[in-house]
Design a protein around this nucleic acid. Structure first.
Lengths: 115, 115
DNA sequence: ACTATTAGTTAGGCAAGCCTAACTAATAGT
DNA sequence: ACTATTAGTTAGGCTTGCCTAACTAATAGT
């Protein structure tokens, strides 16, 4: 969730700080601060002296996986007629629980169905 | 999760006790005991003197919703070529996070696609 | 200079949902 | 009768992931 948000923010913002994540996710500063600490400790992100956040290779990989899942699942739900807001919320939750196998199968299916 | 398990067990077992749920879910007795207490307190199940469990109307409704979701999602993933074990595990998690809107859209799509 | 705002931190709380450990109570085996 | 097994309970622990509260430190407004 956090990694994906950082990736998305880095696309449109040039630089990403904790406060941007706070605004994006509507969480509290303290929650984000603690989460960033953990991501730092586990080597998913790096933070420079001014608090600017960059994804490590490891973190970027996960972020990209999540973003791909999110995009495909929400697009697909929207394509099926689901309201966009709901589709995005559902994709957000499904992307975290679906296995790589199921996602790949779904991806293949969606790509075929859309043609 | 628990309600759905109770419904499935009641189909094949005539009577359902906590221990049956322990075996079905591979949880510990204490976890199931605590969970049953909460379900009882919130009016989802009833337990008689011998510990036999029945779903209330409220509990049955939720159990049936979950089971329908579970069945449709896992069947669909299997249909897409996902290994059955993985499909069932994924369905288990997705059924709890998908909205009614998305599920209905998906159901419609799956029914059409299968013909 | 003084104050307000902004960014970030730590500490402690709380709920969910699992666990182990220690217990009661009833039934079954010999 | 005594013991082992089976079913169930309570208490307390742990992790995740959010929260509020109280704090530091730096920047901006007048």
């Amino acid at each position: 969730m956090y990694l994906e948000t950082i990736l998305v923010l880095s696309h449109k913002n040039a630089q990403v700080r904790s406060i941007d994540i706070v605004d994006a996710l509507n969480f509290k500063k303290s929650s984000v601060s603690v989460a960033m600490k953990k991501l730092r400790e586990n080597g998913y992100i790096e933070m420079d002296g001014e608090g600017y956040i960059t994804l490590t290779k490891k973190g970027r990989g996960i972020a990209e996986t999540m973003l791909e899942r999110h995009t495909l699942i929400s697009d697909w739900l929207i394509y099926l007629g689901v309201d966009k807001t709901i589709a995005v919320e559902d994709a957000c939750r499904i992307e975290h629980v679906i296995s790589p196998e199921s996602f790949e199968a779904m991806k293949k299916h969606v790509e075929e169905a859309k043609q």
